[in-house]
Write a protein that binds this DNA or RNA. Structure first.
Lengths: 154, 154
DNA sequence: CAAAATTATATTGTGCACAATATAAAATCA
DNA sequence: TGATTTTATATTGTGCACAATATAATTTTG
C-alpha cells in the first residue's frame, strides 16, 4: 500500500555504494598514511607532485588542481600545511606573479621512498583478486570520463 | 634513472578512481537535490529514514548511523538541520533517555514524492547502459562487504 | 544496593570540498 | 595607452567526516 518505490531503496543507489566504498577505502589508507604524516587528500597531492617530477617547470597550483579536480579553495590551505611540514615550497613565479609554483623539498622526495610501500600494503591486506581491482579501476575511470565529458556543460 | 614506480602513478590508484568518481557523481546530484533543499549526505539520511518506514518504532540515530556508516559526530548536526527544516523530529525515548528517536514529519514524507524522480533523472542524464551501472553497483557492494568483514578488526 | 563498566548521543576540533567572493596580475581591446 | 576582461590564487563561510572526549543514562558486578 505504501509508496514503496524500490527506486529509492538505499541499496539500489549506485551513489551510495560509491560513497560507502570510498569512505571504507579511505579508512583503510588512514593508518598507513598516518605513518607518513599525511591525510588521504594530502597523499593524493603528493602523488600528483611526485608524478609531475623534478625535471621541467615546477607544478602550478592549477596543474595539481586539474589533475585532482580540486580548486584553490581546497588546495591552498592543504598546500600550506604541506609547506609547513617542509615537504614543498610555494613560490610566486617571477614572470607572472599570479602563478604559484610548487617544488618538492628533499624531504618531499624522501617521503616518496616510504610511500612506495603503501599501494602494496593496501592491496595485500585485502583478500581480493588483483585483476578484479584492475577491472574495477578501469570501469571507474571510464565512467568518470563519461561524466566529465558531458558534465561541465550539460 | 629516477625511481619511476608505476605503483605510485595516480591513474593506477584504485583509490583515486573511486575518489574522483564519487565526487563527480555527487556533483551531478547537487543541482537536482538543491531543488529539494537537500545536500547529498542529507539525501542519504532521508533515504534511510524513508526506508525505515512509518510503521514500527521510529528510527534511532544509531540505526541510521549503522545503515550509512556514520557516527553521531556527523549525524547529530545534520539531523538538527533537517529538524530545523521541519523534515523530522528528534525526541528522547522515555523508557531509555539515552536514545533519540527520529520521526519524519508530514513535510518529510511529502518530500519523498519529489525525491521519487531523482534516481531516474540522474540515470537518464548519463548515457551509460543501465546494466553497466547495475554490475558496477554489485561490484562496489561486494568489495564494501569484503572491507567491512576484515576491516573493523584486522 | 553501590561502584564500575557500558551504551547512546552530543560536543569539540581538524581537515577537507565547494560555492561565492576578493585580490591582484596579466592579457585584450578600444 | 588606458579601460576592460580574463586568469590564478586566496579568502570566507557552510557542511560534512572523523577522532577524541564529554555527558548522561542504563546495565552489570561485587
Amino acid at each position: 500500500m505504501n509508496g514503496d518505490d524500490q527506486m529509492l531503496a538505499l541499496d539500489n543507489q549506485i551513489c551510495f555504494a560509491l560513497y560507502a566504498l570510498n569512505r571504507a577505502v579511505t579508512a583503510r589508507y588512514r593508518p598507513v598514511l598516518a605513518e607518513l604524516g599525511l591525510t588521504y587528500p594530502q597523499y593524493l597531492v603528493m602523488l600528483a607532485l611526485w608524478e609531475h617530477g623534478p625535471g621541467g617547470e615546477a607544478a602550478r597550483v592549477s596543474d595539481i588542481g586539474a589533475r585532482l579536480r580540486l580548486d584553490s579553495g581546497t588546495l591552498t590551505p592543504l598546500l600550506k600545511r604541506l609547506e609547513e611540514r617542509g615537504l614543498l615550497t610555494r613560490r610566486r613565479q617571477a614572470s607572472d606573479e599570479r602563478v604559484v609554483r610548487l617544488s618538492l623539498t628533499e624531504a618531499g622526495w624522501r617521503l616518496r621512498e616510504q610511500a612506495r610501500e603503501v599501494p602494496m600494503q593496501l592491496v595485500c591486506g585485502l583478500d581480493v583478486a588483483p585483476e578484479r581491482l584492475v577491472t574495477l579501476r578501469q570501469e571507474l575511470r571510464s565512467l568518470l570520463e563519461v561524466l566529465e565529458r558531458s558534465g561541465p556543460s550539460d
